[in-house]
Simulated assay, not measured.
Amino acid sequence: MIRLNAFFKVKAGVTTAQVKELADELVALSRKDEGNKGYDLFESTTQPGVFLFCESWEDKACLTRHARSEHFTRIVPELEKLTDGGLSIEQFER
């Protein structure tokens, strides 16, 4: 099992609604990907403008297919435009 935690901070002037519009679509579509065991978005309650994607994948092959999917390659670059410095990703294996 692979766990990804992807943190990002939104740019000044970007609203939560802008982030959630893209992120909610990514979450909904990614949950349908083969091998997905969980995919959620959380907003920090202690650091304004900080968000976290928590993803769990059956194995590396499933994660690779996800990263090549139409929805991922379309949505993530748009989401990154709203961030201050892009996504910071931590990967864990069990």
Rank of each mutant, 00 (worst) to 15 (best):
A17F: 10
D33S: 13
A61L: 09
R94K: 12
V19A: 04
L22Q: 00
A23W: 02
A23I: 02
F92Y: 15
E93W: 10
G35Y: 03
I2L: 15
L82W: 07
A12Q: 14
D59T: 01
L26W: 04
S30W: 05
L82Q: 05
K11S: 12
I2C: 00
D33C: 07
F53I: 03
L41D: 00
K20C: 09
G86N: 05
T46H: 09
F92C: 00
K11H: 06
F7W: 13
K37F: 11
I2F: 12
L52H: 04
D24S: 10
R65Y: 09
M1H: 10
Q18Y: 02
A28M: 06
H71N: 11
D24H: 12
Q18S: 05
A17D: 14
D33H: 14
T45M: 10
G86R: 02
D24M: 11
Q47G: 01
I75H: 05
S69E: 09
C54F: 13
A23E: 01
L52D: 01
E90C: 07
A67E: 14
N36C: 14
V14W: 05
H71W: 06
P77N: 13
Q47S: 07
R3L: 15
R68E: 15
V19E: 04
L63Y: 15
S69W: 10
G38E: 05
E90F: 15
R68C: 13
Q91Y: 00
G86H: 04
S88T: 13
R3Y: 12
S30F: 04
S56D: 12
E90I: 15
S88C: 08
T15Q: 00
S88D: 09
S56K: 14
A17N: 09
K32C: 03
V76C: 05
K9V: 06
L87W: 03
M1W: 06
E43V: 03
K81M: 13
L41C: 01
Q47E: 12
S69P: 12
R3Q: 14
A23D: 00
K37I: 08
S30R: 02
G85E: 03
S56H: 13
Q91R: 14
A28F: 03
K32G: 04
Q18A: 09
V76I: 15
C62M: 08
E21L: 11
K11Y: 08
V27S: 02
Y39L: 04
V50K: 03
E21H: 13
L52Y: 07
N5Y: 07
K20R: 15
N5Q: 10
K11D: 06
M1I: 06
R3I: 15
I89F: 13
E43M: 09
K37N: 13
A67H: 10
E58Q: 15
F51Y: 15
L26G: 00
E55N: 06
Y39G: 03
P77L: 14
G49A: 03
F72K: 11
T64K: 15
G38C: 07
K11W: 07
E80R: 13
G49Y: 02
M1C: 06
T46L: 10
K81W: 11
N5F: 09
F53T: 01
A17W: 03
A28R: 08
A12T: 13
E93H: 08
H71K: 11
E70Y: 10
E43R: 04
F92S: 10
E78F: 11
K20Q: 14
V19P: 01
A6D: 08
I89N: 09
I89M: 14
E55F: 06
D84L: 05
A61V: 09
